[in-house]
Amino acid sequence: MKVLVADDSGIMRKIIIRSLNAVGVTEIVEAADGQEAIDAYKNEPVDLILTDWNMPNKSGLDVVTEIRALGSTVPIIMVTTEAQKSQVIAAIQAGVNDYLTKPFEADDLRAKLDKFVTV
């Protein structure tokens, strides 16, 4: 399984990657902003996307919208500090499969990943 991790924080990407490694996911593509995430997805299809909401160039919501516009059904988990109900609804309407609010514990991420990860 290959996972795309899109977050403008290098520290947050490391935390997410560590959690992915802990559940046996070792094929990981990193993106430091929304445009990188879209480009990476187009160049290297993945089995799951974990994207931050607030990123430079394109937001996580833009990432979801553009990837869904390509006809993709890849599972997407929004990982963000944005927890307002209206934003959660907007993300779901755009095509997000699940939502994880920062800060989170490794176990919280693992629980979300278990729904989608088959290693």
Rank of each mutant, 00 (worst) to 15 (best):
M1T: 14
L4M: 08
A6P: 06
A6Q: 04
S9L: 11
I11D: 14
I11R: 07
M12V: 11
M12Y: 04
R13I: 10
K14H: 13
K14Y: 04
I15N: 03
I15D: 00
I17K: 08
I17T: 04
R18G: 15
S19Y: 07
S19R: 02
L20A: 06
N21Y: 14
V23W: 09
V23P: 07
G24H: 05
G24R: 07
E27H: 12
E27C: 07
V29E: 13
A31Q: 05
D33Y: 13
G34M: 10
G34Q: 03
A37V: 00
A37L: 02
I38D: 07
D39H: 05
A40M: 06
Y41Q: 06
Y41C: 04
P45Q: 14
P45F: 05
L48I: 15
L48H: 02
T51A: 04
D52V: 01
D52K: 05
N54I: 15
M55L: 13
M55C: 09
P56C: 10
P56N: 06
N57Q: 12
K58M: 11
S59L: 08
L61Y: 05
L61N: 11
T65Y: 04
I67D: 00
I67Y: 01
I67S: 00
A69S: 15
L70Y: 06
L70Q: 12
L70P: 00
S72P: 00
T73W: 00
V79Y: 04
V79D: 02
V79K: 00
A83Q: 10
Q84N: 13
K85C: 01
K85T: 14
S86D: 11
S86A: 11
Q87E: 14
I89D: 10
A90S: 11
A90Y: 13
A90V: 10
I92V: 15
Q93L: 15
G95C: 14
G95I: 12
V96T: 14
D98I: 03
Y99D: 14
Y99H: 15
L100N: 07
L100G: 03
L100V: 01
K102D: 09
P103F: 01
E105K: 15
D108V: 08
A111T: 13
K112C: 03
L113K: 02
K115A: 07
K115S: 10
F116R: 05
F116K: 09
T118E: 15
